[in-house]
């Protein structure tokens, strides 16, 4: 299944992309929308990720904040960005725990900067545990209804 690389910039981060790490710091959503040269943005829970859609051509990194792991707004933010065609780095940051990472991968996150380090063996087992899924999402997994009917 998918394989994580350690983020070189941050020893506690994980990255599921092969392209070079984006160097510019992420700015707030409001700052990003007013600074035409900004290329990285941080979206807080409760902010409307759709406001980024007109700016994908200059956007290389979207960092979505999880203030508490039980706050699931960031899953919708990620899914909306992937549905709209965003292909750059999508990072989950904050109170991000290993047991949430499978669903985060499924909605399109491809890097993680958790507050506390993640046990990589547990993560590998977690990401590999399910061979089948019931719904299409932002990952490559094929829903079982498609497998059933070819």
């Amino acid at each position: 299944m998918d394989k994580a690389h350690i983020l070189p910039a941050n020893a506690s981060g994980l990255r599921f992309r092969d392209d070079p790490v984006h160097e510019e710091p992420a700015v707030t959503l409001d700052a990003f929308l007013t600074q035409p040269n900004a290329t990285a943005v941080r979206v807080e829970a409760g902010e409307d990720a759709r406001r980024l859609i007109p700016h994908f051509d200059r956007l290389a990194l979207v960092e979505v904040d999880f203030p508490r792991f039980r706050d699931g707004r960031g899953y919708s933010s990620a899914k909306i960005l992937r549905e709209a065609g965003y292909t750059g780095e999508l990072r989950a940051a904050g109170d991000v725990l290993v047991d949430q990472m499978l669903f985060m991968r499924r909605v399109g996150f491809d890097s993680f900067v958790p507050n506390a380090p993640v046990d990589e063996a547990v993560l590998a087992a977690t990401l590999a545990r399910y061979d089948f899924v019931y719904q299409p999402a932002a990952d490559a997994a094929v829903p079982v209804w498609k497998l059933r009917h070819g």
């Binding site: 899953y75 499978l102 669903f103 019931y134 719904q135 999402a137 079982v144």
Partner: peptide, 14 residues
């Protein structure tokens, strides 16, 4: 039932 089981976007709902 199937479509809502482990729905990745809707598993940490309000």
């Amino acid at each position: 039932r199937q479509a809502t089981t482990f729905h990745p976007e809707f598993s940490y709902l309000p």
